[in-house]
Nucleic acid binder design. Structure first.
Length: 274
DNA sequence: GTCCATGTTCTTTA
DNA sequence: CTAAAGAACATGGA
C-alpha cells in the first residue's frame, strides 16, 4: 500500500488526534512484528505521550515525550487507523495503542512485511537511507545516479539512493520525464536528470494533493481512500492507450517488478552494441 | 491450481 | 572484493 504520498497522508491524518496524547494501554497480539525482538515495547511506551509524528522515507516516526522514538513501516499490506475503542477490530490486527482521549491506534498487516522498529534515542534514519525526493536537487540526484549502472527503474526503487519512491511513483515519474525504464542510470544526460527530478517532485506533489493512490485497500488513518489512482497514466494501465499518443502502454518486468511505460513517449536511447 | 501484489532483505551470481 | 540479479518472506484476491 504505501509509498511516500500514502505514508505522508497517513501521518497527516494521525496528527490531529494523537499529538500530545498519552498512551494508557498497549495490546501487542504478535510480538514478532517488533524489532529488535528482545525489547518489551508495551513497557517502553506505556504512560508516555506523543510529542511528534512525522514521515522519513516510508517510515512513520513517533517521537515520545522522553525524546525516544519508534517507527512503523507499512510494508506491502500494512494499515494504520485511529478510531474509538468500540470499533470492530479487523483481522491481522497486531498492535493496538489506546490513548487517554479514547482514540485507539491500530496496526493491521496481513502479509507482515511491515512492523514496528524501536529506535530509542537513535536518529529517525541511518546512513543507508537516501535523501527525501521533495528536497533533492537535480545535481545531487545526477551525482547519485552516476554511481550505478543499473536500470533507472531499479535505481529509483533503491531506498538508499532516494527515499520514499515505490513501484507506482517510479513508473509515473519516468513517464512524466519521458525516460525509458531500462535506461542505464549512469547514462542519463544532464537534461534528463533535471527533467526526472522535476517529474518526481511534480508527480509526488500531485499524488499528495489527491491523498495518495488506493489500489486495493489503502486507507488513511480515518479510513478514507486516496484518489490519485484515477490519474495514473501508466501504472496498472497495460495495453490501454497512452494519454498523450494513444500507443498501447507496455508492461515489462525489471528487477522482478512490474514496469509500465509508453514505448512511444519513453523511447529507448541508444545502447552500446545490442 | 495459477499468477500477481503499493516492499525490503538475504543469498547467489557475475 | 563489489555490484547486481534473484530468491525469499506471508497472505489474499482475481
Amino acid at each position: 500500500m504505501p509509498e511516500l504520498p500514502e505514508v505522508q497522508t497517513v501521518v497527516n491524518s494521525l496528527r490531529p488526534t494523537l499529538l500530545g496524547r498519552t498512551i494508557v494501554a498497549v495490546g501487542l497480539a504478535r510480538r514478532d512484528i517488533v524489532e529488535p525482538a528482545d525489547i518489551d515495547l508495551p513497557a517502553l511506551i506505556l504512560g508516555r505521550s506523543v510529542r511528534d509524528i512525522h514521515r522519513r522515507g516510508k517510515r512513520i516516526v513517533f517521537t515520545l515525550d522522553t525524546a525516544q522514538r519508534f517507527y512503523i513501516h507499512l510494508g506491502m499490506s500494512g494499515r494504520l487507523t485511529v478510531g474509538p475503542e468500540s470499533e470492530a477490530v479487523g483481522p491481522h490486527t497486531h498492535l493496538q495503542i489506546r490513548f487517554e482521549n479514547g482514540a485507539v491506534l491500530r496496526f493491521r498487516d496481513a502479509r507482515r512485511f511491515g512492523g514496528v522498529w524501536w529506535l530509542g534515542s537513535a536518529p529517525d534514519d541511518d546512513d543507508t537511507m537516501g535523501p527525501e525526493p521533495l528536497d533533492l536537487r537535480p545535481a545531487e540526484l545526477a551525482r547519485r545516479l552516476a554511481r550505478t549502472r543499473r536500470a533507472i527503474k531499479s535505481a529509483l526503487l533503491d531506498q538508499s539512493l532516494i527515499a520514499g519512491l515505490g513501484n507506482i511513483y517510479v513508473d509515473e515519474s519516468l513517464f512524466a520525464a519521458g525516460i525509458h525504464p531500462l535506461t542505464r542510470a549512469d547514462r542519463l544526460t544532464r537534461q534528463q536528470s533535471v527533467k526526472l527530478m522535476r517529474a518526481i517532485k511534480a508527480t509526488l506533489r500531485r499524488a499528495l494533493n489527491h491523498r495518495g493512490s488506493t489500489l486495493r485497500d489503502y486507507r488513511d488513518a480515518n479510513g478514507e481512500a486516496g484518489n490519485f489512482q484515477k490519474l495514473h497514466r501508466v501504472y496498472g494501465r497495460e495495453s490501454e492507450p497512452c494519454c498523450k499518443c494513444k500507443a498501447p502502454i507496455t508492461r515489462i518486468v525489471i528487477g522482478g517488478r512490474s514496469t509500465h511505460f509508453c514505448p512511444a513517449c519513453q523511447p529507448r536511447g541508444k545502447r552500446k552494441r545490442g
